[in-house]
Amino acid sequence: MLRKVVKSAGWGLTLLAFYYVFQVFCRNADALARHAWGAWDAAAVLAAALVVGGAYFVLAVSWARMAPRHEERRLFWTVVAAYSITSIFKYLPGNCFHYVGRNVMGSQGEGEQVGLASATLFEVVLSGLCSVFVASLCALLPGANAGPAWRYALLLAAVLLGMAVLLRLSGMKARPGRGRLVSLALRLAEVPPGIAAPLGLTLLAYGLMAGAAVGVWNAFSAVPVAWPQIASAYVFSWLVGYVVPGAPGGLGVREAYLVLTLSPYATEPAAVLFALVMRVVVTLADLVLLAAGKVIQGRFPRRAAPLLQEARVRCGTGQEGGGV
């Protein structure tokens, strides 16, 4: 029952965000049409897409560092490729198929399903902590205009406490529970060993995203807004799109948040243009990540699962059986 309520609320919020974005787009269509697009604009979009694509790749490496047996070089890059290729699936309705896809592809690379699921769980945890950390830190800087500083100071303190707990529990094994489901839940909740490296990588990724957003604003808007405000608003919008269930790739939700947050300090056309350009940037970044994943997959091809290898040998189609 609770799952249905949360899902319905997520879809309702997504549709409301789409309606709001459509309204402000129509209201500012003339102002957007007057924007003089040039070669520098295209260069700025491509540069930002490469930076955000690099941030996504850092997240892929972070996830792979938490995967089972990541110290094996071939398996590590196989898992990175699985993350990179399936990340585009987040644009499917439901905003969950990229999680499923990376686990399926990763398991074909001899990864362990439970371990990969645990890595995904802690990737979500790290993304939440690190995005709030970067956004709150930027909101506390001079010129952010983000409201009372004490709220962001409390958020920052809570995030630091959460990070400290993760580092303290890293690598600790849970006691076996009673029953299969309890044991599975405890195993999923085990903090991966060496989580300090994924934590640092995730912080780097959100720092790169914030920097790309600031660069896009400076390239496309003549309205002077302090960079901490742009960085904080964008990272918070990313978090909102990340947690709202049903929003494919945060589509609509992030744009609505950016327009609502930045319009009081800039002009509404400038905020709408920034939101639309950043959507183009992150979409291109997903394609950059997909291309990187395909290159890595070609360099480190997945091995067939042990059962499939055995079946091929028995049928005489494997290397050990004198193939056809």
Rank of each mutant, 00 (worst) to 15 (best):
L15E: 04
G53M: 13
M66T: 01
Y20N: 04
F57Q: 08
W40L: 13
A31E: 06
V45T: 14
V45N: 14
Y20M: 03
D30G: 13
Y56I: 10
A60F: 06
A29L: 10
V45K: 12
S8T: 07
L15V: 08
W63L: 12
A36C: 13
H70S: 11
L32E: 05
W37C: 08
V5S: 00
T14K: 00
A44R: 11
R34P: 08
K4F: 01
R34F: 09
A60D: 15
R27I: 09
E71A: 12
A42M: 14
V45W: 01
A29M: 09
R69A: 11
G53D: 14
Y19M: 06
A39F: 15
R65A: 04
V61L: 15
V24G: 08
F22W: 02
A36P: 15
F18Q: 00
L59Y: 02
H70A: 14
D30E: 15
A31L: 10
F18P: 05
L59R: 07
A67Q: 07
F18V: 07
W40R: 14
R69Y: 03
A55Y: 02
F25N: 05
G53T: 09
R65H: 06
M66E: 04
R65I: 05
H35P: 06
W37Q: 08
A48P: 14
R34T: 14
A44L: 12
A64T: 14
W37Y: 07
A47V: 10
V58D: 02
V5Q: 00
A39N: 13
A49I: 09
V45I: 12
W11F: 09
A31N: 05
V24R: 03
A55F: 02
A43I: 11
V5A: 03
L15R: 01
A49F: 05
Y56K: 02
M66L: 06
D41E: 08
L32N: 11
M66W: 01
R34K: 13
S8E: 07
Q23W: 12
H35G: 12
A42N: 14
K7C: 00
A31M: 05
L46F: 12
V5N: 01
L32A: 05
L59K: 08
S62V: 02
D41H: 07
C26Q: 12
A42T: 12
L50W: 04
A60N: 14
K7F: 03
W37S: 11
L46W: 12
L13A: 01
W40C: 10
V6W: 00
A17P: 06
K4Y: 08
V52F: 06
A55P: 11
E71H: 14
L15G: 08
A17L: 02
N28M: 04
V45L: 15
V45H: 07
A9G: 10
A60E: 15
W11I: 10
F57W: 09
N28R: 01
L59C: 13
L13I: 04
L16T: 02
A49Q: 11
A49Y: 02
W40V: 09
V24N: 06
V45C: 15
P68N: 07
M66H: 04
H70D: 01
V24F: 05
C26E: 10
K4S: 12
V51C: 11
V51Y: 09
A55N: 04
L15I: 09
L16V: 02
A33K: 10
R69G: 05
A29T: 12
L13N: 00
T14S: 04
A43P: 10
H70L: 00
